[in-house]
């Protein structure tokens, strides 16, 4: 089978989302890097307001899957919609409503935490007054005006968390958000997940931290690029 199109087709007219559609709907989504498949034929349905926990070993494809949902990567095969918008065609609509806290913190080394977040506000058209409270919530009020290059790994991750707190996205994607965080900061992430759940927003949380994720309504296992039914994952 040779795909005829590997890219988003051109569309006309403005996209319109149906609020009744699930938050995430993927069918047959496969992502290949070169000839190495990272995500294989994933079908996934996540309802609106759901908090989904994604577990699996390193290299299982969790990050790739979340990046596909966030439209940072495009699926090699397969299709899907996020919040009712087509994964390939309506990327900007998805991006407006979705936030990915990835395993790279996306910070500029030579800027301070505050400057980094203010820049994010400009890109998203947010009120810059949100930066202070977000930094405070992530426990960075004292270090907010230091350059990121002097930060420890845990502090960088705190900035990334603060960045995710700037907005109240309809879909929050968290990829190993606890990495390098101390217990106090992990609680901040957990609070953010619970808040989103309480407000009816959707969360997908990928982590292999065994002590985390108990607020999730449903757990899925991922292994070798595939979603496997809970309880049957190979160790």
């Amino acid at each position: 089978m040779i795909p005829r199109t590997v890219d988003a087709p051109r569309t006309h007219g403005s996209p319109a989302a149906d609020p009744a559609t699930p938050a995430v709907l993927l069918s047959g989504v496969t992502r290949v890097f070169g000839v190495a498949p990272a995500v294989v034929r994933v079908g996934l349905r996540v309802e609106r307001g759901e908090t989904l926990l994604l577990r699996g070993p390193n290299g299982a494809g969790k990050s790739t899957l979340l990046r596909i949902v966030a439209t940072a990567l495009s699926p090699t095969y397969g299709s899907g919609s996020v919040l009712g918008f087509d994964l390939l065609r309506d990327r900007d609509e998805i991006r407006r409503r979705c936030e990915l806290l990835g395993h790279r913190t996306r910070l500029y080394e030579d800027l301070t935490a505050r400057e980094n977040l203010r820049f994010v506000c400009t890109l998203y058209g947010l009120d810059p007054s949100r930066v202070g409270p977000a930094l405070e919530r992530a426990g960075l009020a004292d270090a907010a005006d230091d350059r990121v290059s002097g930060y420890s790994q845990g502090m960088r991750q705190r900035v990334a968390v603060a960045r995710a707190l700037l907005r109240r996205p309809e879909l929050l994607l968290l990829d190993e958000p606890y990495a390098g965080l101390d217990e106090e900061a992990k609680e901040v992430v957990d609070d953010a997940v619970r808040d989103a759940g309480a407000e009816g927003r959707t969360v997908i949380l990928a982590t292999h931290d065994p002590g985390r994720g108990d607020m999730a309504g449903r757990t899925l296992l991922m292994d070798g690029g595939r979603l496997v039914p809970a309880g049957s994952a190979s160790s």
């Binding site: 990835g102 996306r106 080394e109």
Partner: peptide, 17 residues
């Protein structure tokens, strides 16, 4: 390079701009 160091370019890509 400054964009690539820590994935900042992906942040620009994901911004609805």
């Amino acid at each position: 390079e400054a964009e690539g160091e820590d994935g900042a370019l992906e942040g620009l890509l994901l911004a609805p701009m």
